[in-house]
Design a protein around this nucleic acid. Sequence first.
DNA 1: CTAGGGTTAG
Length: 704
Amino acid sequence: MATNLSAPPLSPYLSSHNHHRRRCPLHFTSSLRLSATKRCPIAASKRAPPLPSAVAGEQHSASLAEQLKPLSTTTLSDQPNEAQLLSKPKSTWVNPTKSRPSVLSLQRHKRSSSYSHNPQIKDLRNFAKKLNDCEESQFSAVIEGIPHPPTRENALLVLNSLRPWQKTLLFFGWVKAQNAFPMETIFYNVTMKSLRFGRQFQHIEGLALEMVEKEIPLDNITYSTIITCAKRCNLFDKAVEWFERMYKTGLMPDEVTYSAVLDVYAKLGKVEEVMSLYERGRASGWKPDAIAFAVLAKMFGEAGDYDGIKYVLQEMKSIGIQPNLVVYNSLLEALGKAGKPGLARSLFEEMVESGVSPNEKTLTALIKIYGKARWARDALQLWERMSLNGWPVDFILYNTLLSMCADLGLVEEAEKLFEDMKGSEKCKPDSWSYTAMLNIYGSGGSVDKAMVLFREMSEAGVQLNVMGCTCLIQCLGRAKRIDDLVNVFEFAVENGVRPDDRLCGCLLSVVSYCDGKDASKVLACLERANKALSAFVKVLSGDESTDFDALKEEFKRILSSTAVEARRPFCNCLIDICRNRDHHERAHELLYLGTLYGLYPGLHTKTEDEWRLNVRSLSVGAAHTALEEWMGTLAKIVQRKESLPALFSANTGSGNHKFSQGLGSAFASHVEKLAAPFTESEGKAGLFTATREDLVLWLQSRVA
DNA sequence: CTAGGGTTAG
């Protein structure tokens, strides 16, 4: 998911950007001329007369999708071609020395003077209010009481004041039927705005098609409204479709449409298309503004792309755009997602120094970052600064602070905050707050406190959610309070919690360390949540031998219907279940399958001097299985007298989390039991090493 | 609000 951060500093599309700039200086001069013509240079290529044979062809017939391919993959090679690409039949060539494009820069519409000086304004507003408030059935009756004739200005004023989309649509229909004046674009735009409020994409599209039919021009406002409405309705294909239509008409996108469309592609995860459109916009004279950069920052954050974030910063600097609060917030969050807490911290300081005050979202982002990074000192210092400076706090920020406490194991701080919330008027703990507390008590093993909270929740009328349920079940399982566990599970299901894969994984892990009756009770819960999984567990735990291929197929079927983040935990638990029931052979088979399906990437790493087994993400049983498997393989290599490196190591990790269970110590005792020559390194907790000589001796002794 | 665009929680 995240890009490889050890990759070269610039992403491919970024270097293609530079490449493009270097090679196509003419692009800029041409576009400056073009910019005053209200025509999109991308579209122009489609309408251009046949190009000279050598450069005609693909660009002439290219679709928008093709046009949006990264420039590195399209061949914009020689300069005459560029000039051709940008020229078009009806372009009006203006003085090329004119300083800046005029079309692309945003021209907000001023409130027309009839709005402020219209003495009828009060009557019309009251009338609009009546329309807003009346029953739909009375609409036609009310509308007849319009206090002044529906002139263009009057109609616009009323249309602008209608809230529910149904009323807007009815009124618009009425105005059209009056036939008092020709309909202009603005009427459609205002109506669409109201429809967008009600997320009525169907109606918006209907109106847009009506405009096309009646040859009423669609402008940037129309298109951006259509596109953002589609976006809000999650109809991304529709958003793209309408941008394509706009492109075909040759209308030049302005700043608003640009950032709206960039956001559409960004939300589709189409980074390359975003960058390509960005480059083309830049090349045609578009000056991106803060909103466009906020969109880019968010996109790179979602992709975990640090190079992309650097690029955004660099572009803003070179264009001379100072980040505003929203851009800072997007950048901070992006840095968090890209795993750069240190850079987030320094960017935050830079932001404060530049005079931009953080808001709730800024602080939420940072607290979350520090929590995830387990930077307790920074988190607490920031918390202190928040209250010292009187920085704004809201409900989400409170809950984020609680979650951070859970991540860092700050039990007392969390309890204090939780009590403060209970005492407050506006920020009473909700299910998020309770979940955070259940997480804290659950991971800390404070079962009784967790159960007190559980009871308190239902008294306070706060719903238990799936994560809170998972936390509770985890800690009840560890405490072997299986009857309570079953009760909590049943309560949760009865109260609308729909078990997800994480909850199933949690039940599965409890099954792995329970025996007999307890295991059956938990398995019965699992059966209600995931039939296939519980059936598979029964097969694995049973004594009948199973065909490997059948096992493989079923395991594959289960994994493919499991959320990606829960697949490895499933496999880990299943291996533990096999081992705890002395089905070691099956444990090895499952580890093999897990590796086959990519659940354990980087399990083995080899350099010339050292071979390493990385078991940090494995459960105890899986780690043992992996070690045994490895030793078996090495024994064969020794037998075959093949060459081996000087050093062998196994890494369990040290477990940064305050509440983490000791994989390291479990691994140490397993190594001891096997009398294997691995010893834990002095300075590095969780790193076990063995020399070739010791290991070979031991392997040979085992065979003998 | 002044016909259109961006940011908060496992």
